[in-house]
Design a protein around this nucleic acid. Structure first.
Length: 272
DNA sequence: CACTTGACCTGTCCGC
DNA sequence: TGCGGACAGGTCAAGT
C-alpha cells in the first residue's frame, strides 16, 4: 500500500496523538509480523514519530525505536473502543486508554523493535536513497543514482529505493506523467532536461499525495481510519480507458518490470 | 553483473 | 453459483 505520502500522512496523525504517551501493553497476534522482543516496550514513553522512505519509526525513551513497514496492505489505526479486526496482527495499548492496531491483510508488513545503536549501522538505512522532499535531493544526486541503472526502464529505476526513497507504483506513474516521459524509456537514453523534469515530477507528485492525505485503493487509511483523496486527483494511475486530463487521449495500462503501469500515450510518447 | 521472475500472503474481480 | 487465474500500495532471494 503505502508509499511515502501515505506513510507521511500516518506519521503526521500519529505524532499529534502519541508523543508523551506510555506503552502499557503489547499483544502480538501474528508472530511473523513482529521482529524482536515485545516485552521491552512495556512502560516506554513515546518521544517522537519519524519517517524514512516508506518506514515509520516510533522513537521511545531508552534508546529503543519501534519500526513499521506497511508493505502492500498494512494499516495503523489509533482508536479507543474499536475492536481489533480479522487482520489485526499487533496491538499496542497506551496509558490513556487508546490503542494502536497494526492491521495487515497480506502479512507482508512488519513491526520491529530495534536498539538505536543498530539503526545507525543498520544495513537498511544505509541502502536507502535520499529523501525526495529534503534539500539534499538535488537533480544531480538523482541523476548519478539513476545512472547506476542505464538499461532499466525508467519507471523501475525510480522505484528502486536506493535511487530515491519512498517512490512506489502510484507516484512513479504520476511523476512520469508530469515529466512527460514514457515509463518504459531506458534510463540511459534520457536527456538532461528529462532528468530534471522527472526530478521535479517526483517531488510534485509526492507533495500532492501528502496534500490530499494519501491514496486509497482498498486498504490505505490514516490513523483515524479515514481514506486518502489523492487518487481522485491522479492523472494516470488506475485511469485506463479514461480521458487524459491534459490532452483527452485515452489512458493506457501496460506492464513494466512486472508491475501495472499507467500512461497517456500522447503526453508520454517517445522512443522507449 | 544486470536484470527478470518467483515467493511471501490474503482477498477480490473477471471470464468461463 | 462455482472455479481458476490474474492482479493488488513492496521487497527479497533465486534464477537466467
Amino acid at each position: 500500500m503505502p508509499e511515502l505520502p501515505e506513510v507521511e500522512t500516518i506519521r503526521l496523525g500519529l505524532s499529534r496523538k502519541i508523543i508523551g504517551l506510555k506503552i502499557k501493553k503489547v499483544q502480538v497476534i501474528n508472530p511473523k509480523s513482529f521482529i524482536g522482543n515485545p516485552k521491552i516496550l512495556k512502560g516506554q514513553k513515546v518521544l517522537n514519530v519519524w519517517r524514512r522512505g516508506k518506514v515509520l519509526g516510533i522513537q521511545l525513551f531508552g534508546n529503543i525505536t519501534l519500526l513499521f513497514h506497511l508493505k502492500m496492505s498494512g494499516q495503523l489505526i489509533f482508536t479507543k473502543g474499536q475492536k481489533p479486526g480479522k487482520h489485526t496482527r499487533v496491538i499496542l495499548d497506551f496509558d490513556n486508554g487508546f490503542r494502536l492496531f497494526f492491521n495487515d491483510q497480506r502479512k507482508f508488513g512488519w513491526v520491529k523493535v530495534t536498539d538505536n545503536s543498530q539503526l545507525e549501522i543498520g544495513n537498511f538505512f544505509k541502502k536507502l536513497g535520499p529523501e525526495p522532499l529534503e534539500k539534499d535531493f538535488s537533480w544531480q544526486v538523482f541523476k548519478s543514482n539513476l545512472m547506476r541503472h542505464k538499461s532499466l526502464p525508467v519507471k523501475a529505476a525510480i522505484m528502486d529505493q536506493t535511487v530515491v526513497a519512498g517512490v512506489g507504483n502510484i507516484y512513479a506513474a504520476e511523476a512520469l506523467f508530469l515529466a512527460q516521459i514514457h515509463p518504459g524509456k531506458k534510463v540511459g537514453v534520457l536527456s538532461g532536461v528529462e532528468i530534471k523534469k522527472l526530478h521535479r515530477g517526483i517531488i510534485k507528485s509526492l507533495q500532492d499525495g501528502i496534500a490530499y492525505r494519501g491514496s486509497t485503493m482498498t486498504h490505505f487509511k490514516d490513523t483515524e481510519g479515514k481514506k486518502g483523496d489523492f487518487l481522485s486527483h491522479a492523472f494516470v494511475y488506475r485511469r485506463e480507458g479514461e480521458k487524459c486530463k491534459k490532452c483527452k487521449s485515452m489512458i493506457e495500462k501496460i506492464r513494466i518490470s512486472g508491475r501495472g503501469t499507467y500512461l497517456c500515450p500522447n503526453c508520454q510518447s517517445g522512443v522507449q
